[in-house]
């Protein structure tokens, strides 16, 4: 099924932006307004601009971005749920001269994969971990995630998350930042042009540090889930700013001491 948009002729002379070669021609399956599309594009732009496509190996998670390898035009491996950083460790140890990254959601990285996340960071594996936090399990239909906010309604916290039954939203980025093997930690979002610029800067730094062999770099993207949150994209972004940012404040969390 082709949409009308696909047949819209765009005069090349009007073209001010092209997708990089590091993205395939495959159309995203993501819901309208979802942050994954922008996060994919920014990550792939950085790889393109640094000219490291041929030296980069990515690891896809289980979750909404399970098909990341359909879009990211680099060599990739699909990991079991939560195991992306262990898979990345295996790749990186055999190819220390290559760039290796994982791209993981909150359920993958901060629930089922917590042990792998923490120990990979604690070993200071010289990889980049990109962490998309939208406080919900999107792929399976909107269940409570480890980062679901207190009071937030999901299909498995229908009256809102309570401390009594589910504890607190886990701040795994801050936990990871405490580890001496971790070199650089940042938290951004992708809902405004400025936020996108911050993400791009963070990812660029992370790859540069990886080239220098500095250790684990960890970049969290606070994102939305209009479908899971049952909001329009605009409502979701507003809700994210008002509710997610107080718990997961954007900014650089760990920067190298120079």
């Amino acid at each position: 099924m082709e949409t009308a948009l696909a047949h819209t002729d765009i005069e090349m002379m009007d073209c001010v932006y092209e997708k990089p070669d590091t993205l395939t021609d495959q159309r995203f399956h993501y819901c309208p307004g979802c942050g994954h599309g922008v996060a994919h594009r920014v990550l792939m732009e950085v790889i393109d601009e640094l000219g490291i496509q041929e030296q980069t190996i990515g690891v896809a998670p289980v979750g909404c971005s399970v098909f990341a390898y359909h879009y990211m035009n680099v060599d990739m491996q699909e990991a079991a749920h939560g195991r992306a950083s262990a898979v990345a460790t295996g790749i990186k140890r055999m190819h220390p001269d290559k760039y290796v990254y994982t791209y993981q959601g909150d359920g993958d990285l901060a629930a089922i994969g917590t042990a792998e996340t923490i120990h990979t960071a604690n070993r200071g594996e010289n990889i980049l971990v990109v962490f998309i936090n939208n406080a919900i399990y999107g792929m399976t239909g909107g269940q409570m995630a480890p980062t679901t906010l207190l009071g937030m309604k999901t299909s498995t916290s229908p009256a809102g998350r309570t401390i009594e039954t589910a504890g607190f939203p886990i701040k795994i980025t801050e936990m990871v930042a405490m580890l001496p093997g971790v070199y650089y930690v940042a938290r951004t979002s992708v809902h405004t042009p400025n936020a996108v610029r911050q993400l791009k800067k963070a990812l660029t730094k992370a790859f540069q540090y990886q080239k220098q062999g500095k250790g684990t770099c960890f970049v969290e993207v606070v994102s939305n889930c209009p479908s899971g949150w049952k909001m329009t994209p605009l409502q979701a972004n507003k809700w994210m700013e008002e509710n997610m940012f107080p718990v997961f404040p954007p900014g650089e969390i760990k920067v190298p001491k120079n």
Binding site: V59, A79, A80, R83, A86, G90, M94, H95, E116
Partner: peptide, 10 residues
């Protein structure tokens, strides 16, 4: 899973 990654990397 490290074996998976390393084997996948040849």
């Amino acid at each position: 899973n490290m074996v998976y990654g390393a084997s996948g990397a040849g």
